[in-house]
Amino acid sequence: MTAHLPDAAPTNWVDSHAPQGLRPWLKLGRFDRPTGIWLLMLPGWQGIALAAAMEGRAPDLKLMAAFFAGAALMRAAGCAYNDVVDRDIDAKVARTAARPVASGEISVGQAWAFIVACSLISLAILLSFPPVAIGLGVGSLALVAAYPFMKRITWWPQAWLGLTFNWGALLGFAAATGSIQLPALLLYASGIFWTLGYDTIYAVQDLEDDALAGVKSSARRLGAAAPQGVFVFYVICFFLALTIAWFGRLGPLFWPPAALYGMHLARQAKRLDVSDGPAALALFRSNTLAGLILFAALAAGMWRPAGGLFIGG
């Protein structure tokens, strides 16, 4: 029987409802832990919302649906690839020892077949986008391929994850407009620091096991100063989010949800306790809501009062 993984919710739909034979495959793609799908998808949705708001219109729902499917598939492929590369390390860490590849439930060859299948379907979605977006999608593969090795060579693999997970902000903007502009680059930069913060929180769960396995992380590097580090990352993230509104010439309705976004991030940093792994996991999961709030702020920025008042000059 497939083991319940400790960082999945006890009542997740895979363990509760999926057919027994499919469970190892769904867990290989992390479908029992959907937070990662949201965190990969939301920068793309934010890029789509930003592009639309700059033109005074609502986000394209069909494009958002395509990004949801693509994010779910590419996250599944990326997680399976990570499990293949890290299978020996995963076997030494309590939180990851029961993963399908590390436990031997799925072979390396079977995992590669899963990776190829998910990637091909994602490619079909990508090819429906403008040429600039297609180029960006192909370019992201280098970031994805290098990520599993970062924890072996740097104390800041969370920064590399930020580069990787937020690539969708550029891709979403390019899919909507066929180009890349400064506000999209600012959204990408903001997202990098957002991910650096929330993945540092996530890494708090593994402080002891990572030290035993020799795995590097920003949480280990910061140690007891992790809450302060996360706060700094989030301050930079929030400041960059405000510059997006200025250079994107968004309307004044951007501000209320943006303020809520900043308060949500500050709350996470304040509540982080490096000695409480379960609480850190809950804070990490709350970033789904944080990303949705920023998406709402960007989408609301489409509205401008009579006279065409903008935030930016």
Rank of each mutant, 00 (worst) to 15 (best):
L5F: 13
T11V: 12
S16A: 15
P19W: 00
R23N: 11
P34T: 03
W38S: 05
L40D: 12
W45L: 13
G47I: 02
L50C: 03
A51C: 05
R57I: 08
A58S: 14
A58K: 06
L61V: 13
F68Q: 00
L73R: 07
M74A: 08
C79R: 07
Y81G: 08
D86E: 07
R87T: 01
V108W: 08
A113G: 15
I115L: 10
C118H: 14
S119D: 03
L120F: 12
L123G: 01
A124Q: 09
L126Q: 08
F129A: 01
P130E: 10
P131I: 01
V138N: 04
G139Y: 11
S140R: 05
L143A: 12
R152G: 05
A159Y: 13
Q181A: 14
A184Q: 12
L187M: 11
Y188Q: 06
L196S: 05
Y198E: 07
A203C: 13
L207T: 13
G214L: 11
A219Q: 09
A219I: 09
L222C: 11
Q228G: 14
V230H: 05
V235F: 15
F239Y: 09
L240I: 08
L240D: 01
W246K: 07
P256E: 14
Y261H: 06
M263I: 00
S275D: 07
D276N: 15
G277I: 06
P278T: 09
A279G: 14
L281F: 04
L283S: 06
S286L: 03
G291M: 02
L294S: 02
F295L: 08
A300E: 04
P305N: 09
L309P: 12
I311V: 14
